[in-house]
Write a protein that binds this DNA or RNA. Structure first.
Lengths: 252, 252
DNA sequence: TATGTTCTTCTCATGCCGAGTAAGACTCCA
DNA sequence: TGGAGTCTTACTCGGCATGAGAAGAACATA
């Protein structure tokens, strides 16, 4: 048998945690929803040092469960979701953050998840209602740890995913109008879209939406005809994609 | 002060690793390069149980360093790269895998990274040459742990990134021809591309490549005129993107 | 009823894309 | 040396997606 190399020794030692500084693994969740026409993120106010009194992303220690299960559990605990509701929530892994010193107490590697839902209950029962809140994105300031960076990465992921997946349909109800869908894009992307072109585009992408045949009972609150209602289609990717206008500055 | 909720207690306890089963954090690297016109991945042969004798992705325990540093270190150790070489290697986080039981010995959460380089030295000095090898993608079989899944995710990420980033220029040398670049796309995507359209497309994307003014000294090995040489441009995103043909089956 | 808003469809000019063609430069082999 | 085959580069053509604008009909509110 060949003698073990330094890197192999490291690998073997890695299974004996006493050989190294202890590491904790947590999950943090960037949970997004749209309320009152604005994009909101779920934040909790810290009741202990460090960063006491500051807002942070909800999260916690990983138990004997898969990482995604841990994220779903944390989200459910903070929002009071019941298991059935979770089917309506889109959850995906965002990335991991493990810079030494990101938590002053000990080494903590966190796996961040991104969650979307059309509505989510107010934080309540099962959680500390006074310490968790839906906050408009524009009003978030100075989160604890490196959560500002995680939130930024989550927002960019969300904006990008609207382009080539039917994710926007997760922000609306079971039946929705094309304008409802357009409102999602406008809120998340933060820009106005051309109503006519958006309409044409959505209907032309196969599997994005399917017609219910029905229409809304009334026109819009400020006038306009009744709009046709649609359901989510079966596409998992949008082809061709709905690209954001004006990203020229991000290209280089 | 409000009483602490269960989830907050969990969070606090998370900083006392004695309160929970110990967790190890590793990094694993999906290192890709092109050799002899085929896509290769760096694999190591395991010399210890479990999965003794099977091939696995290179990886190891995270020390007192950032996650990306750990991945770069592991890659350098296996390939004998010197620090200067690392500038030429593209490294990005792929995702984290933490299913309980993925390692039979204890709970291990791994953060996977994806690495690309135009050439990488054969595994040697500083590593166990007999136990690490560049393997053609088509010949990889039954990797240890959940590394098959990680490799698949890495390949899909690489294929996807070629579409909308200038990543392909990381697989070629400093000066290259359009055909060199096309060969990268063909090898990674596993399909033939239309030479004329590819040429037009690459030159029309702003910042993808820039001309050096020079040409190759000779024609191709089987004939053809001398080709013009190009350098990497300054674009970070390709706009418009070079989309893969025939993904129709993946859309739904 | 009058006015303004919104949904939906259309038109038009522009530009990208896949497929095919072609000229010329080059290598290899007989 | 000559011919066959290869490859780079450029061009054309039809189809399709896109952005901008316009228009008609349906609806709410005053």
């Amino acid at each position: 048998m060949p003698s073990k190399t330094p890197s192999e020794n490291d690998f073997l030692q890695s299974y004996d945690p006493r050989g190294f500084d202890p590491v904790a693994v947590t999950v943090d969740v960037v949970a997004l929803t749209i309320r009152d026409g604005r994009l909101h993120v779920l934040l909790v106010r810290r009741g202990e040092p460090p960063y006491i009194g500051q807002w942070a992303l909800p999260g916690g220690f990983v138990r004997n469960e898969d990482l995604e299960e841990a994220a779903a559990r944390e989200l459910a605990e903070e929002t009071g979701l019941v298991p059935g509701d979770l089917d309506r929530v889109h959850l995906e892994q965002l990335g991991s953050y493990g810079r030494p010193g990101r938590d002053p107490r000990m080494r903590v590697v966190t796996v961040a998840y991104l969650a979307f839902a059309p509505w989510l209950p107010d934080p309540k029962a099962g959680s500390d209602a006074a310490a968790a809140e839906w906050t408009p994105i524009a009003e978030t300031r100075q989160l604890a740890f490196d959560h500002d960076r995680i939130l930024d990465d989550g927002l960019e992921r969300a904006r990008s995913k609207l382009e080539y997946t039917p994710l926007a349909t997760r922000f609306v109800g079971d039946e929705f109008t094309i304008s409802d869908l357009r409102a999602v894009y406008e809120v998340v992307w933060g820009e106005q879209l051309h109503a006519g072109n958006f309409h044409r585009k959505v209907l032309s992408v196969p599997g994005f939406v399917e017609s219910t045949g029905a229409s809304t009972e009334r026109g819009g609150p400020r006038g306009g005809p009744r709009a046709r209602l649609y359901r989510r289609g079966d596409a998992r990717q949008l082809h061709p994609a709905l690209l954001r206008p004006s990203r020229e500055d991000e290209i280089r």
